[in-house]
Design a protein around this nucleic acid. Structure first.
Length: 596
RNA sequence: GGACCCGUAGCUCAGUUGGAUAGAGCGUCGCCCUCCGAAGGCGAAGGUCGCACGUUCGAAUCGUGUCGGGUCCGCCA
């Protein structure tokens, strides 16, 4: 148990009392006992459902248990009063000193405050972004990148051993088409007279990637590879000569861009796994072999999807994976009709690879268009790992960019395509990251460019950053006011804080007390957005305190003639700053020292 | 035809995994402030949590059905 978690400590107290009231309390009932801050502050600091959840096991009405609990709890040292209420709640009012005692704990722990142990000993792999290396990253990728990165940070804070991973989808038809497009730019770079139409007619599947971002790739090819390529027949009719070289170079160039995009977004992943390398190693075939040995592979014919039969549909025997044995709706094909592996087959091999690296949980952060993919992947991971590894998916819904209340149409042709780079340049990394986390991942979101740039309360990024800047500003001013003992860190942790008696101060401390619990709950739910909302609420509590000093200067944090009281308030301010920083660190947002 | 996600105030969204009288911001209305501790403060109105059953002490939350929006459903990745 984390001793800096006030709620966890109190829960222990309640459980001890409950076992006295209900001897032989079953484990599963004890696990359901919660300590929560009541919605209505009039109900006290905390409330517990202990009486209600144990009523059945105890064969007593909740009210009776609650009454008995009240007696025991009133005797607890940190509890000022307890009372039974409503359908069987026990409302607890803490002694203010129990709340204040949290401040030195927070200051001593620093940004480690809120670290949890719920994930101790559990290895998690979080795979995110994993965009095709076929062009610059756009807004769609951005949300997954931010959510995945923040989720990984969050799990790390909750004690999990986390690996951040990127799966490079560099095999298959897409990158072959990309290589052809790069080859076209190469021809242009060396002054080939061939027209685009003539070229496109020669390309299997047509010329797909017409973006200008490949011009530079073509030029580099011309410069660096011409010597090597020139010895061979470079004709369009002999792609086997150059395709692999061009593909290699183009993928590398694209991945360099992607990595730069990620770096600008503050995303740093630990492992990059190449699908192409995986395929080349024969991993996919090996996995299919294994599943075959387990009787999970067969040759069969799939039914066409009802209501939407493709025009060229004809029944064909295929190599199928028995995913229905693991809860999927239909069995899934592993080989195309030409015998090559499907993306799914390669992906099974990839996840098998992750499993072999010893993870207990695999989390994929995916776009919403992959929703239909989750069941089969879950099935595959269960099959490959003998049910020992858990697969989870976090789906990110679409982001609509808004400006002036109007949606910004994304069109490559019209040139209104918003790349991640554009977005970062316009609003900055921190605002992008924070804003992407102000919605549940599985809800569609509108990204309002005007709001993100606004310097008012309606902009959560600004509001939270401003709270931190105000904290830091107070601490800086304090250093000038008391040059002898600059208030910081350990010094403030030792400051007596019993002068903090006002309700707004205690409200703020209650919020700070919720941080460890917020981390645990958000990590368990895989919902990093909860951190953003917590910080917003925390900022609101702090701003409220600050605003009191605007009206009444005797309520300001710094009072030159009251050094002791000032130090107590500084401890509160410093603790607030610590928690904000701790939360922003999870989100990958840089805390600012001052607003400019 | 089926699967998954979403449906909460006029708008954009939270809702601590089943708790008490469902919240925030914006917008609307009213009052206060114009102080660099700048980039506001206080308050009001606004809700059948899409709808209907069900589960139980208790449902926005869980189950079934239904309506609406989104995503997807063999050889794209």
């Amino acid at each position: 148990m984390n001793s800096s978690d006030l709620y966890a400590r109190l829960r222990e107290t309640v459980l001890v009392a409950l076992t006295k009231v209900v001897p032989g309390l079953p484990e599963d009932v004890a696990a359901r006992v919660e300590i929560t801050p009541p919605r209505d502050p009039a109900h006290g600091d905390m409330a517990t459902n202990a009486a209600m959840v144990s009523a059945k096991a105890a064969r007593l009405p909740p009210a009776r248990i609650a009454a008995a609990l009240v007696e025991h709890l009133t005797a607890a040292p940190e509890i000022a009063s307890a009372e039974a209420a409503g359908p069987g709640f026990v409302n607890l009012r803490l002694r203010p000193e129990a709340l204040r005692a949290l401040l030195p704990v927070i200051l001593a722990a620093g940004e480690g405050y809120g670290d949890a142990a719920t994930g101790a000993g559990i290895k998690v792999n979080v795979e995110y972004v994993s965009a095709n290396p076929t062009g610059p990253m756009h807004i769609g990728h951005c949300r997954g990148a931010v959510v995945g990165d923040a989720l990984a940070n969050l799990l790390g804070k909750a004690g999990f051993e986390v690996t951040k991973e990127y799966y490079i989808n560099d095999a298959g038809a897409q990158v072959t088409a990309l290589a052809w497009a790069a080859y076209w730019r190469y021809l242009q770079a060396i002054g080939s007279p061939m027209t685009e139409e003539a070229f496109a007619a020669e390309v299997p599947g047509g010329l797909q990637y017409k973006g200008e971002y490949l011009i530079g790739v073509g030029q580099t090819l011309a410069k660096e590879y011409q010597a090597a390529l020139a010895t061979a027949d470079l004709g369009i009719e002999s792609p086997e000569v150059w395709l692999d070289v061009v593909k290699d170079h183009t993928i590398n160039a694209m991945m360099t861009e992607v990595r730069e995009d990620l770096r600008l977004l503050g995303v740093q992943q630990d492992v990059f796994t190449s699908e192409r390398a995986l395929v080349a190693s024969g991993a996919a075939d090996a996995v299919i072999e294994r599943l075959h040995a387990d009787g999970l592979i067969y040759e069969g014919v799939l039914e066409p999807p009802k209501g939407k039969t493709p025009e060229d549909w004809e029944p064909r025997p295929q190599t199928l994976f028995r995913s229905t044995s693991f809860g999927d709706d239909v069995d899934r094909p592993l080989r195309k009709s030409d015998g090559s592996n499907t993306y799914f087959a390669n992906d099974i091999a990839y996840h098998a690879d992750k499993i072999s690296r010893g993870y207990d949980v695999l989390i994929d952060v995916l776009g919403a268009d992959h929703g239909g993919y989750v069941a089969r992947m879950k099935a595959a991971v269960r099959a490959v790992s003998q049910d020992s590894v858990k697969f989870e998916a976090v789906l990110c819904q679409i982001v609509h960019i808004m400006r002036g209340g109007q949606p910004v149409r994304m069109s490559k042709r019209a040139g209104t395509y918003v790349t991640l780079r554009d977005l970062l340049e316009e609003v900055g990394k921190d605002a992008v990251r924070f804003t992407m986390l102000t919605r549940k991942a599985d809800a569609q979101m509108e990204f309002d460019l005007d709001q993100v740039l606004a310097t008012t309360r309606e902009n959560p990024v600004f509001y939270v950053q401003y709270a931190h800047a105000r904290c830091r500003s107070v601490l800086r001013a304090a250093a000038e006011m008391f040059p002898g003992s600059p208030p910081d860190g350990e010094d403030l942790a030792a400051a007596p804080v019993d002068t903090l008696t006002g309700e707004p101060e205690l409200t703020l401390i209650r919020r700070l007390a919720l941080w460890p619990r917020t981390v645990e709950a958000a990590a368990a739910a895989r919902e990093p957005h909860r951190i953003a909302f917590f910080l917003y609420d925390l900022a609101a509590d702090f701003h409220m305190l600050w605003n009191r000093g605007k009206d009444d200067s005797t309520l300001r944090f710094l009072q030159a003639d009251q050094p002791a009281e000032t130090r107590a308030r500084l401890a509160l301010v410093a603790a607030t700053a610590v928690v904000i920083r701790s939360g922003l660190a999870v989100m990958g947002v840089t805390p600012v020292e001052e607003m400019r």
